[in-house]
Amino acid sequence: MYRIRFHGRGGQGMKTASRILGTAFFLECFEVQDAPRYGAERRGAPIFSYVRASRSPINERGVITNPDLIVVADDSLIPIPAAGVLQGITDNTTLLINGHDDANTWKHRLNINCKVLILPVTEEVEDRAELPFVGSACVGAAARLIGVITEENLVEAVNDEISSLGADLIKQNIDQATQAFELMAKHEGLVKESTSKTPLDYEQPEWINIPFENASISAPTIHAAATSVEVRTGLWRTLRPVINYDRCKNCWWVCSTICPDSAISVNEKSEPVIDYDHCKGCMICVARCAPHAIETIPEQLAQEKEKQTA
């Protein structure tokens, strides 16, 4: 059975990607299972979807924990533990990354021994949540790596799954898919079907008896205020608002008041300060700042700059 997992951000079309690949397999007469993993499916937030395909009926269910291929639409997600990109990765897994850095850089960075392939980002965009056609490109590359899907069926699958988008968008998606398909020609068939865990080599689950704990401990009650600050929603951000204090009029009540996430506070000098651990990058502050003192910078770029200055 083939087990493929797609990782991206809400808005990058990961659900559609899994459906396109599922349909492509189906057109090749495979048994198929595809599903998005729903959760906090928010723009910019990490999301994943998965596809199983086999020549015989599929009995496995749920999230894939032993992927043969992990496709990452947005390389900025890889270092984020909450995104779970590397969950279940082994030396037999293929990791396909849509990004700038080369394969060896990632291998060193992640300290992994599996096959790493790079799908070069064809065009850098300001807002990664709107990375155009990244889903289709990922599917095109994945299809070639798997090696059992023809270009013809790939195209038909794209057509099937996005038929409501209109001719122009369909064409652009198909172009992206087929270009990526071409790009991976020399790696055709790199991803191999793997078998299931057998009763001979399985790791015994460490079951425990949960101890009795009284209701002061075991009721679903939070005994403190504002614990949500521990959730780093800044990871969702694909665009970063940056305050230019030369232009800022210190009318902090505008940006600080309208920020839905309470992520702009005011310091003792009456200057607004953005909390990047929690700013989701909605850019309302940018839109509403009368003196245009807040600039928009692609998050990726901002982080690279930070690294250089560090």
Binding site: E213, I217, A224
Partner: peptide, 12 residues
């Protein structure tokens, strides 16, 4: 998770 929720476990 319970630590984040400030659940007092000492008693137990």
């Amino acid at each position: 998770l319970q630590a984040i929720a400030h659940v007092e476990r000492e008693e137990l």
